[in-house]
C-alpha cells in the first residue's frame, strides 16, 4: 500500500476528519491506487520548468486603503450555529 493506515490516520488528523476503521482501509486502498496512477508524472523531466500557480499574466491587483462598509452585526451572526453576546461560541479552547 502506497498510503498505509498510519498515514491515512495522520492525514485525517491534519484534515480534521474522523474515519471509521472501515473507512480507513477503504481510503488507504483508494488513495494508494490514485497516487500510484499519479506516479505517471515521475516520467516527465521537469528540470528547469517553473511551476504554474496562475495561468494569468496579470500582476498587482491592489486596492486603496479605503473603507468599505462592513456588514451589519446581525448579518455577520445570522448563520452562526451558536452565538452569545454578539460573539461566535465554540467549545472551550484549552491552551
Amino acid at each position: 500500500m502506497k498510503v498505509d493506515l498510519r498515514e491515512v490516520e495522520h492525514v485525517s488528523r491534519l484534515a480534521r476528519i474522523y474515519l471509521t476503521d472501515t473507512e480507513k482501509s477503504k481510503f488507504s486502498a483508494e488513495l494508494s491506487s490514485i497516487l500510484e496512477y499519479m506516479d505517471l508524472l515521475s516520467e516527465v523531466d521537469t528540470t528547469d520548468v517553473t511551476p504554474t500557480v496562475h495561468t494569468l499574466s496579470i500582476i498587482n491587483a491592489l486596492r486603496h486603503d479605503a473603507r468599505k462598509p462592513s456588514i451589519p452585526h446581525d448579518d455577520a451572526l445570522q448563520n452562526a450555529p451558536s452565538e452569545s453576546n454578539g460573539m461566535f461560541s465554540v467549545p472551550k479552547v484549552i491552551e
Binding site: I17, E23, L31, M38, P51
Partner: peptide
C-alpha cells in the same frame, strides 16, 4: 472527504515536492 484527504496528503510534509510541486511543473508543460 476523499479529495480533502488526497489534497492534504499532496501538500503534507515530505510529499509536497513529489506531488503538488511536480504537478505544478507539468502543468506548465
Amino acid at each position: 472527504k476523499r479529495r480533502i484527504m488526497l489534497g492534504t496528503y499532496a501538500l503534507s510534509a515530505g510529499y509536497y515536492d513529489q506531488y503538488y510541486e511536480k504537478a505544478s511543473r507539468v502543468r506548465t508543460l
